[in-house]
Each structure stands twice: as C-alpha cells, then as structure tokens.
Design a protein around this nucleic acid. Structure first.
Lengths: 327, 327
DNA sequence: TCTGCTCTCGGGCATTTACTCACTTTCCGC
DNA sequence: GCGGAAAGTGAGTAAATGCCCGAGAGCAGA
C-alpha cells in the first residue's frame, strides 16, 4: 500500500469535492456546449467572472471536457489506411503532424488515452496488460477518471528499476486508481542479472496470479524501445553498453518488454533474451497488441515489430507514418 | 426534385471544397486537441492568423467540432434518474438550465441531435420516423454531415401545410441530405378536412411504401403539441378555434402527430381524431419513441404523454424536468 | 477585353479569456 | 484559541480571439 500513500501525497487536494467538480462541469457545459461567455456563466452561477474562469479551467484540467473533430483529415486517414493495408495492421490511427516531436508525442498519447478509455468503457470485464514507456505514461495523464471496477490491469513487464526504485509502478497504479480497477504489478526488474535469477524471480508463487492474468490479457499496450545509444533499456540501466552493442551486432533493431528483435521482428538469440522477466510476446491475432510510438528514431524498430506481427495496432503521427511507408 | 433544387439554391457555396474542410479540420484539431493558439496554427499551416481563425470557425460552423462534458452534472443526472424511475421512461436526458426558454430549446435540440447521430451511427439499417416541431428542426440544424446511406427516414405525419406549401418537407429533406439517407415524405396535410378525405389521401397507392415504412420505424422522434392558444395545430391552421375549444372541452391537454389526448394520454374521442393523416401512435416498447420538449407550457402535455406511455424517452431541460416531478 | 460580381485576404479594433499578484478565508495541528 | 499553510477571491493586465471593413484576386457574362 506504500504506493497508494505516495499517490495520495502527490495529489493532496486534487481530489476536489464533488460539488466543486459539479459546478466546474456546469460551467464547462455552459461555456462549450451552450457557448456562453464567462461573464454570462458567472451571472448564471452567481459567482464572479474570475471564479467562472477558474471553474472552466478546472474542468479542463480535470479532463472533463472532451473534444473530438468529426472529420477525418484526409492525409491522416490516407496514411492510416495505407499502413493498415500494406502491413496488415488491425488498427492504425494517425494524428496530424505538429512542429516538434514532443508535441507529436502528446498528441499520440492523447489518442492512446482515448483508445484506452474506449476499451475500458466496455461493460464486460477486460484484462488490460501494459508495458512501459513515455507515451503510455503521458496517455495515463490524459485519461479522465472513469469508474470501471470490473476491469483488471496487469503489468506485462517488471516494475522495478535497477536501483530498486519503484517509479515504474506509478503508471500502473495511477491508471488503476483513475479507472478504479484492480492492479497487478510484477515486482521484478525488467531484465534480471542471470537467467537463473530470472527463473527464480518469476517462479515466486505470489507472482503466479499476476502472470496468469498477464498471459490472458486480451488487450495489450506496449512500448517500442530503440536499440540506439538512447535505448531505454540502456538508459534505465537494465543492460550495459557491451550487451547492447553485442545484441545490436546480432541485428537487434528494437525491443518490446525488454525482448530484443531483429529487422524481421524475430527474437534475437542471445543470453540477454533469457534474462528478460516479461511476459512472452505473442503474435496471436486474438490479443489486441497496440503500440503507440512516434519519432524518426523509432522507425526501424516499428518496421520490424510490424513485420514480425509483434503488434496488431499502431498509433502514431503523420511524419512517422510517412516514414514507415517511405523507402 | 423541386425541394432539392431549393436546397441547393439555399446553400450556394456552403458545400465547401473538401480540401478546405480538410484544412478546417486540421486547424480545429490543432486548436482544440493540441491546444495551439491561432497564431501557431497560422504558422504551422502557412496562412495568416485571420485565415486560421476563419478555418477554425468554419470547422465549428460545419459542426466538425464535438464537445462533450464527461461529468454528469449531479442535479441533471438526479432529475433524469427520478424521471426514469417515477414514470418508467426507458431513456431520459436532462440538460442544465439556462436563463431563457429559447436557449434551453437550443440545448435540448443539441442533445437530440447527439442522440440522432448516435442512433444513425449504427451499421445496421435503421428506419427513423420523424414528426414535426421546432425542436426537431433545430436538432437537424445541429446535426453534422454523416454518411449512412443504409438508413431510411420516413415522415410520420403529413408534410403539407394547409396553404399547400411544403415547408414541412424541409426538416425531412435536410435531415436526409445531411446523413445521405433515403427519405420518404407523406405528402398529405396533417389533418384532412373530412374523414373520407383522410381515407382517400392515405389510400393512395403511392403512399403505401412510406406508410409501411412508417409503421415499421423502430426509432421515432416526436414533437409534443400543446392545446392552449399557442397550439401548433391551431397556428398552422389545421384546426379552427371551435374545434380546439371542443376537444379541449373533452379533456385534451396535448397532441402528438395531430392526435389529441387527455390527461391520461388516452386519445380523445372526437371527429377530428378521425381526420388525422398520421401514423397511429403506439405504446409498444420495442419502438423507441423519443420526445424532445421543454418549457412550462408543455408540462401538462408531457405528463399526459408519459402517463399514457405515448413516449418511451424524453429529452428536456432542468426546469421542465423539475416541473414534471413537481406537484 | 472589360465589367461587375463574389470570394478571400489581411489590418485594425472591441471583446473575451488567461494569468499574475496581493489579499482573505478556511482548515489544520498544536 | 492560535499560528501557519493552503485554497479561494478579486483586481489588474497581457494575450488571444472574434469580427468588421476595405482591398485585391478570380471568374462569368457581355
């Protein structure tokens, strides 16, 4: 329960009183649906103009206001259709291009949040498996609070950083808390130091339920890691430079959950592969495997993951989509 | 085809070139989803700030931008739950109160448009039956252009005004054109001058397909008419003052499709009832019968329609909902 | 080719919104 | 009850937005 306490500490007052949020929602409704100015809203609600402004901005902050553009921007639609067609993706979403990669990341994260929300809005219980990554982290930030206790969220990779910190937990628990779903962490490192350590770690009986759930997750959200000098598994200290260079020498162009794969999306035959403490990758089409990734550096890894059917769905931006289709 | 020509004449250039709408959608996306200022949008799109502003506003105008507030305003939710519970309504939506009845009307119409859009977004072909009324007319204005040629839209009441004008057609055809669905008008008056005229009119073999469709419509949108001095059937000239006074004397508190009913929602036994050229009212729960209405004057008619199960769903505003629940 | 017409563009300005800052209130723990 | 911190409040101001207008481009018909 330590992490819960942490969560609570991190957001001491953000759990607004319902009455306030109610007013915020009403103000936002008046502003966006009824098209009132903040002055009019203030008068209607009997507060000052500034307070009305505050209410509207709180509603935005709280993610109460959802905007969707009801028109497929043709180039995006076209790119997405071509990606689906060329690579046999079951799902492909392309968001419009933006000036910077960081912004594109936000946009992709936003779209991913929408997708998660959609999948979790199902009545029937869903087991959602999640990996790691910035995009997923950002997506969870954008997710509104929804109530769906019927679902379960399970980590598909280890949640412990090499320094023993549990920062990786946050995404899982924040997500779980936001949607009031049960969460199942995997309190092991992403990559163990030896294969026998890996076997011992995953053999712990307390992990059995989480692992069982993870294997059965119908909906997986996965991050795509590069294998260049900015490789997340290197940066996070799960592998050292020598190991990275070695697997790259064997053709590794990317990794998912820590598993390195080559340009065809086939797992690299290396000792490090045997040390990965994650749930095995699957190519079963019954499992929805969504990757959200963007940026030029991700292109080779994405190409490979798609080629190897390691992912069944992709959310990306216009530029990355164009690169994927390009030569 | 006369009305089509009329339609085209009425909107000479509003059928924007797709490219323009595409830019508009992109601008709107940047503005609302990415949260860019119009200055930034202008720079990204390589146009002037004013043009960017124009694009965004065009996107709004075209109904491309959909905003939804993802938080049930508790009083509205509460009212709707109580209405559903007390009166056994299958569906009940309550929009927040506004200062004027006209604005409330807009809000209700907006919500009705959302509902129509939702129902028409189904893959399976739907037969949508529509009545008349300001609210429906306003809702159609708010409806975005969507492509669902699998659906059919049929008029449940006559479409000809007593002066022979066909203004009533507009709602049907505008709706049909917006969603690219087939439309089936009922080119007869709402109320014939004699019962035998009614029988002759409805007996026309050319009307048989439309009438058949109308009877089978799974989803009906109906207006609720009052029987006071502002009664639409009086204003539109379908009945004279004497007739109105007479049926009111027999207990009529409202009408749907021209059929007058009493406080219990039972049809009034009067010769005028036999002259109504509309599709019979039904209380079958398999048929979704949505009324969108608001305003103090509508309350008695609404109460009666609900009591008689003439409608299965209601969209209204906070004030009207409170009145319905009140003493 | 010219003329008249509409459409679009960009400048300027009024309105509206977002944000900062100083102040008040409220809610804690002591 | 008291001190302190955090949240809320209202004024003022900078930024952003919406809108009107005149100018110029594109186009149909004479």
């Amino acid at each position: 329960m330590r992490w819960m306490a942490l969560e609570v500490m991190k957001t001491p007052r953000s759990a607004q009183t319902p009455k306030k949020l109610d007013d915020a929602a009403r103000a936002a409704w008046l502003a966006y649906v009824a098209g009132k100015t903040q002055d009019e809203i203030a008068r209607l609600l009997g507060v000052s103009r500034q307070s009305a402004q505050r209410l509207v901005s709180q509603a935005m902050q709280a993610g109460l206001v959802k905007v969707r553009i009801d028109h497929p921007i043709s180039t995006c639609l076209d790119l997405s259709a071509r990606l689906q067609d060329r690579f046999g993706l079951a799902l492909c979403e392309v968001v419009p291009a933006l000036s910077s990669e960081a912004e594109a990341g936000q946009a992709v994260a936003h779209r991913l949040a929408d997708l998660i929300e959609d999948r979790l809005s199902a009545e029937a219980p869903v087991t959602l498996g999640i990996g790691t990554g910035r995009t997923l982290r950002a997506a969870v930030e954008h997710l509104p609070r929804i109530d769906c206790p019927q679902h379960r969220i399970v980590s598909l990779t280890g949640n412990v950083a090499p320094d023993g910190s549990t920062s990786y937990y946050n995404v899982l628990f924040t997500l779980g808390e936001k949607v009031t779903a049960q969460t199942f962490p995997l309190p092991v490192p992403v990559i163990a130091s030896t294969q026998s350590e890996r076997d011992a770690l995953l053999g712990q009986s307390t992990l059995a339920p989480a692992l069982r759930l993870a294997h059965g997750a119908q909906f997986r959200i996965m991050g795509i890691g590069t294998m260049d000098s900015a490789a997340p598994i290197l940066r996070d200290g799960f592998v050292d430079d020598a190991t990275l260079t070695r697997v790259r020498g064997k053709g590794a162009v990317g990794e998912i959950f820590g598993f390195p794969f080559d340009g065809e999306g086939a797992l690299i035959d290396d000792e490090v592969t045997g040390r990965v403490c994650s749930v095995a990758l699957t190519t079963e089409s019954a499992v929805e495997r969504i990757a959200a990734a963007h940026g030029r550096s991700k292109v080779p890894a994405l190409r490979a993951a798609i080629a190897g059917r390691l992912i069944s769905g992709l959310i990306t931006d216009e530029n990355t989509a164009a690169s994927l289709l390009g030569p």
